[in-house]
């Protein structure tokens, strides 16, 4: 199962900077970041090349951080690639709660991160369709 890190964060200048600074210092490569915001606070979700280490160093620095199960699937970096995945889920009536992604190799490979209610089920489904799933970086 793929993992993402969620970090509780007050909506204030310099907060993101603190996270990226720690990751840089610890030589952790930040692959993707997305923010869900609710006025005075938000949740920063990140994907790195070493989530376990990132979790530990952020926790040590007193961040409120948690692991979440997500589906991390490799797709092609071309027109329609996301749509094919979305279509598979729609056919099974699976709701995508949150999604973001990043490119690994331009015009070739990208990674899609999906937050769904039953990640295990979605992983099996995508595997059956020949998709490569990523456990952790």
């Amino acid at each position: 199962m793929g993992k993402q890190l969620s970090i509780f964060m007050e909506n204030k200048p310099g907060k993101i900077n603190r996270i990226t600074g720690i990751l840089q210092k610890e030589e952790i490569n930040l692959k993707a970041m997305t923010i869900a915001d609710s006025g005075t606070f938000g949740i920063v979700k990140i994907m790195t090349d070493n989530n376990k280490k990132a979790f530990n160093v952020l926790k040590k620095d007193n961040f409120l951080v948690s692991y979440q199960d997500v589906v991390v699937v490799e797709i092609q970096d071309r027109v329609g690639a996301f749509h094919y995945v979305a279509k598979i889920l729609e056919d099974e009536k699976i709701n995508i709660e949150d999604a973001y992604g990043f490119i690994i190799e331009a015009d070739k490979k990208a990674v899609l991160i999906l937050k769904v209610a039953e990640p295990k089920k979605v992983e099996t489904l995508l595997k059956k369709q020949g998709y490569k799933l990523i456990e952790d970086f």
């Binding site: 969620s6 509780f8 609710s38 409120l64 951080v65 948690s66």
Partner: peptide, 15 residues
């Protein structure tokens, strides 16, 4: 302050 053990990364739980 949000309690450490409670945070599960879900925005909806916090709201």
């Amino acid at each position: 302050e949000v309690k450490k053990g409670f945070f599960d990364g879900e925005l909806s739980h916090l709201t």
